[in-house]
Design a protein around this nucleic acid. Sequence first.
DNA 1: AATGAATGAGAATTCATTCAT
DNA 2: CATGAATGAATTCTCATTCAT
Lengths: 188, 188, 188, 188
Amino acid sequence: MPADDRRTRILDAAEELFAEEGFDATPTARIAEAAGVPKGLVFYYFPRKIDLLLALLQERLPAPTSDAVRGVVRPGDPARSLLALHRRLGLDTHDSLVLRVIIFRESGTHPEVRDHFRRLRRSLVELTESALEQAVDRALARTLRRQAAETFVSVMLDHANARRSGGPVPDLKGAAAVVALAVGAPAG
Amino acid sequence: MPADDRRTRILDAAEELFAEEGFDATPTARIAEAAGVPKGLVFYYFPRKIDLLLALLQERLPAPTSDAVRGVVRPGDPARSLLALHRRLGLDTHDSLVLRVIIFRESGTHPEVRDHFRRLRRSLVELTESALEQAVDRALARTLRRQAAETFVSVMLDHANARRSGGPVPDLKGAAAVVALAVGAPAG
Amino acid sequence: MPADDRRTRILDAAEELFAEEGFDATPTARIAEAAGVPKGLVFYYFPRKIDLLLALLQERLPAPTSDAVRGVVRPGDPARSLLALHRRLGLDTHDSLVLRVIIFRESGTHPEVRDHFRRLRRSLVELTESALEQAVDRALARTLRRQAAETFVSVMLDHANARRSGGPVPDLKGAAAVVALAVGAPAG
Amino acid sequence: MPADDRRTRILDAAEELFAEEGFDATPTARIAEAAGVPKGLVFYYFPRKIDLLLALLQERLPAPTSDAVRGVVRPGDPARSLLALHRRLGLDTHDSLVLRVIIFRESGTHPEVRDHFRRLRRSLVELTESALEQAVDRALARTLRRQAAETFVSVMLDHANARRSGGPVPDLKGAAAVVALAVGAPAG
DNA sequence: AATGAATGAGAATTCATTCAT
DNA sequence: CATGAATGAATTCTCATTCAT
């Protein structure tokens, strides 16, 4: 097995388990077991446990770029545009989801993670603002745009967090409709 | 020192530390230390560590009742009404805040906590719906009302979570304005 | 409730639990609970845990006296006589059984108990010898008498121990028959 | 030091201490100390304390096979045959002794141990029956054979238990003589 | 005389991390 | 490079025993 493969599988396992059980509650031994690699290898690649989490954030949580907005916006239909953005951001695909959940949960306890989380939130807001800007035909007050974007970002994060816990997830579509109405468009 | 006092102080310390560090990352020994009681006393009152968390939820997280809506609604001003509701719910006071944060974060890993969290979310949505209903003059479509309420609840929870981590908190006022606009009222 | 009654109930509970779970594995708190008395009362009557065991031995394990032989011997029928002695000794009634089991098991670890156990064994052998003496018509060699008695005592103790563990118990009747044959009588 | 050695030494220490003090009364820390290994190593090899006991039973308490009878029987001399069987079974050597004592004592509280104990008793009875069969010249009634065997097994177990406690041990020779007489042979 | 709250000395067990090979 | 045996600090939890009231 190529060395790179094994490193990847360790990260895969860590991502899964951290999202499932939490960082603190996941022993490195279980990560090795789930990855099918010897226990020593985990510490060979990631000398400290926290390095696993940091590697996940650095390698798998690229700050979304403005590219993300391109092609998702439907002028005149902010609701659909927001939902398309959400899809494009990968916030609803599994891989990305768990990562977001991780930083959502661990951001309170691990400083490095908190910084990542802040960066993520900020860029999410910017992207959402940008999407709204392009989707709404008429002029949109800067303040309202920001408020609408922040509102939708809160819902997206809440949505990501709720999904994993198995409970009922917030109605993302509904939130998109609400935000669309607020910025003066029909709910879609 | 009265016995009741010491039990209370243990719960106080647990609440603080769980919110600060997380449930798993908080040793019972530190709780005892923070409460100024011997280690054994923690287990005298709470035989298992999880019982501390459960006691916090049961004794300090009363499901908000419909009373909470009374007196906070300003007819014709849903934005202010939502903010007033938020204040009334104590979601911005310290004590309540940390509790909500605890269950927010731990709800993924501990089943009993997850149930509490679901109940809390459900009743928050109901209260918010009720507040909106009363605050909006004209007829409000059932679906929109629900969507608007869910959106605001997501923001409230995200807000509570963000506050503790020390970072910038989502703009609650802005979200209230957005929701108000969506239900056809001026942003306030 | 009379004080004496409560002390008795503590001993009852201890006897039961020690036999069931073993001395070390029985917390004093469970004894109090089983006896329906406050935890403090156990230590009021029995300052140390070991005092419970000692009290049981001193008060409820009277060394069997030679009276025990009287009336149980059937001249010419040693097998029946041995079984009758066993019954008379109360080794097959519950109360006495558990006590014997306790000292059987704990005699290895607690010196005071070991002495009790030795005394018990010795007097059992003497009584059995005496019973054999009277039950066998013809002269019985001193050595054989002692050997036969010791053999039967081993079986009685093994029997008491096996009974509690729920498994198949040794055939006491069979052992009586064997011993009877050895001392020259028909098996009965 | 080879890894195997250290595992073995842990088991040695456990065997000794369990027999000496009892399972419950022996802290794993003392086992580690007696074995001269760090505390963590005990749990590396035996994740739970009970695994130590189980490993002892599985690895060091082989069910005696019918081979044990071969060569020990002296036709026409059941008494000597029984004593030879006892020696052959290793019931009088130290290593085996303590193991038997352990399961004798702990069989009441630990289900897995109880099963081992039952199996041991059963095979002991079978072997003893077999030895008697071959040692007695004339025909031996099936019932008497079983009774005689069970009687001797009770004595063997009682003997093993008594030896450790330091007190006077039952007279094994005498029991062999008694059993031999019962099956119609001279006492030897 | 009686009690239940209190305590602290361990107990088993976990686990990140090290390191010889 | 890779690994699995090894380690010990930390953690949860137990419980005999004390003692103020």
